[in-house]
Design a binder for these strands. Structure first.
Lengths: 154, 154
DNA sequence: ACCATAGTCTATAGATATGGTAGGTATTTT
DNA sequence: AAAATACCTACCATATCTATAGACTATGGT
């Protein structure tokens, strides 16, 4: 299960992708309000995203947040990685840290590791090939489909 | 990250697959000792697996646990599903429960859902096509490779 | 019938992670 | 100087995960 942190991050990034297309700076308070995210909690998330290189900020009056990269250069995998330290399935397969399973006496031929390695590959392949732009686009498409159907039915 | 519960479950099942081939009953205490799993914790896990239809047990003297199905009929996905209620990535995509995201005002065209739906498909596809037998076999193969290399180097 | 064995159930304690809050600080614009 | 705005540190509450304890029930051997 992805954490709320990650979910909020994706919501905020989605909002920034849609409302900051021409380089406008968006306020934390606007993001928090529009996406219904606790403001203080969101602050911490945005800082993490900035440190992770996907957001830029400007302090002071007239300040705010904007994407540091175009939406099609920001993969969902990168976001997940920033906020959860990678999508780790077992301790010993974590991206960042190279830990051996404490429990596991034979990590070299641990079947669980093999299987979870496969799962991780599958997950990473999706997360790294999907960008913020894709996410927003799919949402928009679905919304349009819906309104088209609505039109027909009127 | 899969929970220890699930990891312990897979360890125990692996042991049963390897040591119970001819239908022997294996004691909880043996499993706990050999796989270094806290016994009382393991008990609960085994009960869950039994209720999930993957294990059979016999109470009383001479009792113990055995697989309820051949290892190649037990998918890793099933085990994960029993212990974690499915590999849910977002609340609104859980297998068992059909919940709408509370936060999400527009679940029908939520981009996060679309993306996580794809991830879930990828994960499930691996977990459902991999069986306990595969897991054990890969572990064995790796172990043999290793010993072969050892032989050469001697 | 009795007893040892072995799984089952319920309750609970301790540890860790998550979600959320409070208050103050630093920086920029006007 | 004042207002706006992001930044930082610390903290708390709750939920979940891991683990343990103890009493209960069923079986088989004697």
């Amino acid at each position: 299960m992805i954490s709320k942190k990650t979910k909020y991050a994706l919501q905020a990034l989605g909002y920034l992708a849609e409302h900051g297309k021409s380089g406008e700076l968006i306020l934390i308070s606007e993001l928090a309000k529009e996406e219904a995210i606790p403001k203080k909690f969101l602050e911490a998330i945005l800082v993490a995203l900035r440190k992770g290189g996907v957001l830029k900020s400007k302090i002071g009056k007239g300040g705010g947040y904007m994407l540091a990269l175009p939406p099609d250069k920001i993969t969902i995998g990168r976001v997940v990685s920033i906020l959860e330290g990678g999508f780790a399935l077992v301790e010993c397969l974590n991206d960042n840290v190279k830990i051996e399973c404490k429990e596991c006496r034979e990590p070299e031929y641990c079947g669980i590791r093999f299987v979870m390695g496969d799962v991780k590959k599958a997950v990473d392949s999706v997360l790294e090939s999907t960008t913020l732009a894709d996410m927003v686009e799919r949402s928009d498409t679905a919304r349009q489909q819906k309104s088209k159907i609505m039109d027909y039915s009127i």
